[in-house]
Amino acid sequence: MKKIRAPFFTVNPKSYLYGTELLVMARKADALAIEHDIDIFFTAQHVDLRLIRENTERLIVTAQHVDPITVGRGMGHILPEALIDAGVGAVFLNHAERPLPLSQLVSAVKRCKELGLYSIVCADSLLDAKAIAKLEPDVMVCEPTELIGTGKTADKEYILSTQAAIADISPETLGLQAAGISSAKDVEYVIRNGAHGTGATSGIFAAVDPMATMVEMIEAVVKGRNLIS
């Protein structure tokens, strides 16, 4: 698989936006990925993933969940092979809004590795980060659950400690710090303090102008890249 380039950005609409309106956002994000030559993960509801993939060039189209099943039985579950067929490149796992038992998480990360899907695994504490890093996912989202959607970012100590813990256990795993990101200033802050990437949901989609906010945040990633390069 192609190596993910840091710093990167994740646009994660959850269930705030879907269909045609989401595609408009995705096309803009794609244009920025091309213009600035950066990696952007763009999640979508599963029914919109193929739509996004077929109408963009550079986005890493990302599923919000996958189940560790194989072709056959699995009514109501998300088949990894089906995501591959739809052009998906990455998968979120173990988000606070879609947690997984450890056994399922282990199996899901394994299936992603088998199929060449980037795995983006969430942890909500330093202890969780240390445990999950042992699975050697491609990206770890280190966000305290209590900060999600609050507009308050993790402090510098938390960012540095989780990034160091990941690097010590799984050097190839990238750290994404995203909880509470609500402005371009927040984006610059976490990049300057060692995060390999960041992203937002409510910070973008609950903003007065979601499109303008997304653009500002992506441009802040570019600015952060230039500051640390």
Rank of each mutant, 00 (worst) to 15 (best):
D39M: 06
S107W: 05
L102G: 01
V88Y: 11
V66Y: 00
N94V: 14
I84S: 02
S107I: 00
T56K: 03
A108S: 14
Q45H: 09
D39I: 08
Q64K: 00
E54Y: 02
I40F: 04
V88P: 07
F41D: 02
G87C: 11
P101Q: 11
I40V: 13
F42R: 10
I60V: 14
L59Q: 08
L83M: 11
H95P: 04
H46F: 09
I69S: 05
I84G: 02
L117D: 04
M75K: 13
T62Q: 10
A108G: 06
G89F: 09
A86P: 06
I52P: 00
V71M: 10
V106P: 02
T43M: 03
K110L: 07
V88C: 11
S103M: 11
D37F: 00
I60Y: 09
L93S: 03
E114V: 11
V71I: 12
V66K: 00
L93I: 08
I78V: 15
R53H: 15
T70M: 10
L59V: 07
D85A: 15
A96I: 06
L102D: 13
S107F: 07
N94S: 13
V121F: 09
F41M: 11
I60M: 14
R58E: 11
R111I: 12
L79N: 14
E81A: 09
A44S: 14
L105A: 09
K113Y: 04
I38Y: 00
L83R: 00
D39R: 11
L100T: 05
K113E: 04
C112F: 05
H77M: 10
I69Q: 03
D48S: 05
Y118Q: 06
D39A: 06
L49W: 02
T56D: 09
D85G: 03
H95N: 12
V109W: 10
T70V: 12
